[in-house]
Design a protein around this nucleic acid. Structure first.
Length: 280
DNA sequence: AAACAAACCTGTGCGC
DNA sequence: TGCGCACAGGTTTGTT
């Protein structure tokens, strides 16, 4: 589900409503959510701890704690992080609940029907062992910034299909299936172009599209699809979906050229939507 | 090196 | 109305 803009929206919510509040109780319902370590490791690692920052690398949320450890949350396909009053009913598939100290009597709840997501406390000094995929993440276009020349070098350095490269978290971190298609459409290049075949103008368009689409989506609070799975920590959906030009629009006219029909194919193992007229 | 399929789970939407 | 199948925002692993 959530890609960089949705995770960034959650991060901002955590920065304002979770950081600085001590955790004085931890419940783990479903062991699978903490499979990386264990129920006890999460309880011991979080009880009495306070997050001192909320960071993001690609689709990974990283929250440094005052204990020296860090909390990592990954939403994968269906994860949600909510902050709700302790008195409000819990959604089905609420797997982890953190009790926050204070008169507000609120809880951070991790809800995840498909249970692909995870919650783990790790030692940043030992991250290479405890969370090795973090070190493999490529450049984050928002957190790190991605220069045009840097992108050009990444593209020229290998011969990859463009969409596969955009989805590869070890190259650029944070882009998923929706935003890959939207970025390629905005850049007017096809998903199956080879990365090292782009001309300068195409590289420049792709660079502008990555920044433009991701920033616009963050500003819109992300994309909430028909299933309304994605919401921010206050339960509010995003509205970037109204700006989607290709995703889930197969069979409908292209909003850019107004003449061609958006096509849908399976590519790089993912549903891929594009305009056969705008994208070359 | 890069492409591909399958696996991990649950819910939903669609065709019959 | 009910059933079965295909498919879904992600990532890893094992094969070609």
């Amino acid at each position: 589900m959530p890609e960089l803009p949705e995770v960034e929206t959650v991060r901002r919510g955590l920065a304002s409503r979770f950081v600085g509040r001590m955790i004085d109780g931890v419940e783990v319902g479903r062991e699978r959510t903490v499979r990386r370590t264990s129920r006890d490791a999460l309880i011991h690692g979080l009880t009495g701890a306070t997050a001192i920052a909320a960071d993001r690398r690609g689709k990974y949320l990283i929250l440094p704690l005052d204990t020296g450890d860090s909390l990592m949350i990954h939403l994968r396909m269906s994860g949600r992080v909510l902050i709700e009053p302790a008195s409000s009913p819990r959604l089905a598939h609420t797997h982890v609940v953190l009790h926050l100290a204070g008169p507000e009597n609120e809880q951070l709840r991790f809800v995840d029907p498909r249970t692909f997501g995870e919650v783990v406390v790790f030692d940043p000094d030992n991250a290479a062992v405890e969370l090795p995929e973090l070190a493999r993440l490529g450049v984050d276009p928002i957190a790190d910034g991605l220069g045009r020349r840097q992108l050009a070098a990444l593209l020229a350095g290998r011969s990859r299909r463009l969409k596969a490269m955009l989805l590869d978290q070890s190259v650029i971190a944070g882009i998923g299936n929706i935003y890959a298609d939207e970025i390629l459409h905005a850049a007017r290049v096809r998903h199956d172009r080879l990365s090292n075949s782009l001309g300068q103008a195409e590289v420049a368009r792709l660079h502008a599209a990555i920044g433009g689409i991701l920033n616009a989506a963050i500003e819109a609070g992300g994309s909430t699809l028909k299933d309304t799975q994605y919401v921010d920590i206050g339960g509010e959906g995003g509205w970037f979906q109204v700006s989607h030009r290709v995703y889930d629009r197969a069979g409908q006219p292209c909003l850019t050229c107004g003449r061609a029909t958006i096509r849908k194919v399976v590519f790089a193992g993912r549903t891929t939507s594009f305009c056969p007229r705008c994208q070359k």
